[in-house]
């Protein structure tokens, strides 16, 4: 278990800077088995996440690392779980330029693609896209290794793998068990966004969130004015595919609340 490599992790960039990578080189297996053990580095605890590798502009190497006390170092605030090719991060970056965001992706080649994509965007748009990055990880096992308690204000689960078979339901990225962990890393008031084009999964995700005592549905009026909501169905590659095919989508947007005493 060593350190994570961020988007700027040296040597990875085969592409000429600024040239967007072509997606077909990165085609990987569509469905991954999240239960297999990892063979990629996992930070031992949130203290070991190498922010300077992910967000070099926010953590310049020449600055004294131990200069704490003055300004609190920024922390990752948004997580896009199972980010795929990273379309959501790219869409969110200019809307929240001062928020650090991370995509979490299990597939190696897809992660590499997102890294290249972010580097290319930074190179061709100086001063932009410095707040987004990606990490290769199994989010179902290692969320607490990346984020402290109450660190995140938004979590995204866009078009997750459906795992139709009953006995594979425990592989679903939204479950009562995993919601405990998401609630732990989210601040009270933080929002969890889910969307899918698979009705059965949509019902499942909503019912898990409804049953969980640390989440409550965000009222429709708020959803309507939330600038993020539009991106759920339009920003990601999967969302665009569904839209092209005229597919229906099912979203569930819930807020992290504190435990209500009875």
């Amino acid at each position: 278990m060593t350190r994570t490599n961020g988007a700027s992790g040296g040597g990875g960039g085969q592409q000429a800077a600024g040239k967007l990578p072509r997606k077909r080189f990165y085609r990987a297996r569509a469905h991954s088995n999240p239960l297999s053990d990892s063979h990629f580095p996992i930070p031992i605890s949130p203290d070991d996440v190498e922010l300077s590798q992910h967000y070099p502009r926010y953590f310049p190497a020449d600055k004294d690392e131990h200069g704490d006390g003055e300004v609190a170092a920024p922390r990752i605030r948004f997580a896009d779980v199972g980010c795929g090719f990273g379309g959501l991060l790219v869409g969110l970056s200019p809307i929240f330029p001062d928020k650090l965001m991370i995509g979490m992706e299990l597939r190696d080649k897809v992660t590499e693609y997102v890294k290249e994509r972010v580097l290319a965007l930074r190179a061709s748009n100086p001063g932009q896209y410095d707040n987004i990055s990606v990490v290769r990880t199994n989010s179902m096992k290692y969320i607490p290794n990346y984020f402290r308690k109450a660190q995140l204000s938004k979590m995204f689960f866009l078009f997750p793998d459906p795992h139709f078979k009953e006995k594979n339901h425990r592989r679903r990225v939204i479950s009562m068990q995993l919601l405990d962990e998401y609630a732990y890393v989210m601040e009270v008031g933080g929002i969890i966004y889910t969307i899918t084009d698979v009705e059965e999964l949509g019902i499942w995700m909503r019912s898990c969130l409804e049953k969980h005592s640390l989440f409550e549905a965000v009222p429709d009026e708020e959803i309507k004015v939330d600038p993020v909501v539009k991106l759920l169905s339009t920003a990601t590659e999967e969302g665009q595919k569904v839209a092209r095919n005229g597919g229906q989508t099912f979203q569930a947007i819930f807020r992290r609340i504190s435990l209500q005493e009875e």
């Binding site: 031992i44 607490p144 609630a183």
Partner: peptide, 26 residues
């Protein structure tokens, strides 16, 4: 998997114990 989870044991645990107090990671 090298994890220790500390969970709040609620007054009525039959409804589940969803609140994590901490993870002890190291």
């Amino acid at each position: 998997d090298f994890k220790i989870r500390v969970t709040v044991f609620p007054k009525n645990p039959l409804k589940g114990a969803p609140e994590i107090q901490s993870f002890c990671l190291g």
